[in-house]
Design a protein around this nucleic acid. Structure first.
Lengths: 137, 137
DNA sequence: GGTAAATACTTGTATAATGCAAGCATTGCT
DNA sequence: AGCAATGCTTGCATTATACAAGTATTTACC
């Protein structure tokens, strides 16, 4: 996967987006930050999908280079590094939520709670607002 | 990239979506079908990003297996095979459009016409309706 | 009817991305 | 000082993608 900076494939906005997060892992890190309250390397690693350590390190670097996340030392524990979404990263909420809506519609075995399904159908703006405020959905 | 059918990484709806089109090329084929009126192998190949022939063939197979597109012979020209989006594929319009909106906001050199930018900000439902009706946006 | 062009692929091989196991560096705890 | 926690890096195997070429079927032309 290319970090932004390498030559872009075209001027298309879909391509621009895919060049940044169109791979198997980037959006799962964003998901962990956006919906699951995760903020450290170790927490991302624990996510059920099993990302490899080197791939995670690379994705974090790319996401930071592209300005979707930023990192900072934890003042309480200097071993820990805290990652969080920038505004640019938070603005991916509609993309993620629409993906979730699509999957909920077509995945027979979706693990999505009914209340969230309802919100995805009837209150997308409310969900986006919650994400921006850092609330869990 | 896995066609659906291989084991899924998790039950998460984001993962479900990424397992189907979370790669460098799948959504560009969907884009060509959805926004550019393309419908043949040759037309997809001509898109500026330069997908390799074997990768295109594989992506078309996967998208068809997953029920996002379907193909049919052209009665007028038996050499041609026509691909088009199913309802399941058309339902990706909100995902694509939100990606475009995000890119338009953050890509300094987006090739997106002003009228479309306005619609992305102010009339997403209208755009989705147009896509469903097969109109160009 | 024979030949060439058009269309949709497949095949073979090189390069790049990902997966996996292990190891290293820094900080914190005792 | 020693050990655990945390966040990585490194080396190598496997998989995906890129690139160049070739094949199969249908159509158009002479």
């Amino acid at each position: 996967m290319l970090c932004s900076g390498k030559k872009r494939r075209s001027k298309c906005p879909v391509t621009f987006a895919l060049d940044r997060f169109g791979d198997k892992w980037s959006l799962l890190v964003v998901r962990d930050l956006m919906f699951r309250g995760k903020e450290t390397y170790g927490e991302f690693l624990e996510s059920g999908e099993g990302i490899a350590t080197n791939v995670l390190a690379d994705r974090l670097k790319c996401l930071e280079t592209d300005g979707l996340i930023e990192k900072s030392g934890d003042p309480e524990n200097k071993r820990r590094i805290l990652y969080r979404l920038t505004d640019k990263g938070l603005d991916l909420a509609p993309v993620l939520l629409e993906m979730m809506r699509w999957s909920a519609k077509y995945d027979a075995d979706t693990g999505t709670p009914q209340q969230l399904l309802d919100s995805l159908e009837n209150d997308m703006p409310g969900l986006i607002e919650k994400v921006r405020e850092g609330m869990q959905i």
